[in-house]
Amino acid sequence: MPARLFLKSTSIPPATAMSLALVNLASFVSQVIQIGVIDTLLPLALTNAGLGEQHGGMMLSLYWIADLVGGFFVAAILRKTHPAIPLLISSASFCLLIAVVMYAPQSVWVLPATLFAGVGLILRWVICDGLIVQLAPRDKVGRVVGFHETLMGLGIVLGPILIGWLGDDAFAMSGLAVLAGVIALACAFFLPTIEMASTGKGAGAALRRWMDNWDLVVIALVAGFVEICFLSVLPLQAQRDTGLADAGLWMAAVFVFGGTVCQPLVGYISDKAGPTKLASLCFGLLLIGAVPMAVAGYGVIAASIQFILGVAVAGLYTAAVLIAASGRGQGYQVGVLVIVSQSYTLGAIVGPSAGTSLLVMVGSWALPVLVLGAAGLSIGLLMLRRQS
């Protein structure tokens, strides 16, 4: 049924629609665990095990560091293997991490399992995103990618909700991870081989792309920094304030839900005003919502603020992708789009450690301070770019 609905709404040939449906399903179930669950569960479980909030934030940062480092080697793997191999590694890695964190959070196996899972994340990320772009008809790339990104947002939303329901049941959480892994692997056997391409090779070419597109680095880095920081810190903050993490888990879900359901609005604004103005608007929303968030508590007003902030963060990432895809008049640039994902990952690495460290020092003002600093500095840098 989902494949038929997808086919009907986009008029994509049946064989292509089926392949896209399988990629979306594999990516969605993996996203639920790899980002939706792990980004929240890892610091929360380690903190509850008595290892401290800073330790949990540091471990989540290492998860994203492994993702970033793995990105420099993943292309060589994908060129030589069928998607089933990297998705098998990906599924095994997140199943292992969930089991270790739930059953033995104080063991020495947490670190290697975290690093292994980070590599598994980048394998799935690249293989699924690459196949989505490869399979999408040229005149429908935007709609196909938009559908995929909506599913990715829903996957992140489901993570905190599932932790709220099953987070204390080690067997249930481990079983959920295994189920997701089996589904992803089953889909992988029916997928085509990805066609790898790049715009330039070598450290020099990569460095030039980063320098030429530093504004994209700023936008995507802030998106990753704020999003992963919120997912990891909100439950810990609620636990400090109320004694329970549940309120923070629901706030995290509302935060991601805002960015997910408002993707059509974000796209409309970009079409009318351009992605650069979209980014400026999103930075403005972050500045407006930062201070009220500190005093709003965990009720309806707080949820409304989190919803708006979620829209802003999702809009930043979308703006960065659209600017990169436009190539500033030079066409579709794969290398520049890679910069967007790497910059997001850099932000995700710094976010949890910064957020949990500041949480210890200033409590509920940690997230507002970080948002004000990141958004304010970014606006200043982008104004310099516009004047140059």
Rank of each mutant, 00 (worst) to 15 (best):
G310K: 01
G299V: 01
A290I: 00
V300Y: 06
G297F: 02
I301K: 12
V295F: 11
G274E: 13
L287I: 06
L316K: 09
A273V: 01
I301N: 13
V300C: 06
I305H: 10
C282I: 05
A296Y: 04
G310I: 01
A302V: 01
L287N: 04
A314E: 10
L285P: 03
Y298C: 00
Y298Q: 11
V313A: 11
A314Y: 10
A279S: 15
A314L: 07
A314V: 10
P292S: 11
L278P: 05
Q306G: 15
I301F: 15
G289Y: 08
K277P: 02
G289V: 01
F307H: 06
P275L: 06
L286Y: 00
G274N: 11
V300H: 07
C282E: 12
A303N: 14
V291W: 12
L316N: 05
G297L: 04
I288F: 00
A294R: 12
F283A: 11
S280N: 11
V295I: 14
A273M: 10
V300P: 07
V313M: 08
P292E: 10
V291N: 02
A273T: 11
L278I: 08
G315F: 02
L309C: 12
G310E: 07
G310C: 12
G310Q: 07
I308R: 05
A279R: 11
A296S: 15
S304C: 14
L285H: 01
V300D: 08
A302W: 03
P292G: 07
G284D: 03
V313Q: 06
G299T: 04
A303D: 14
Q306H: 13
A273N: 11
M293A: 14
L278K: 11
I305R: 00
F283E: 13
T276F: 02
Y298T: 12
V311S: 08
A302G: 14
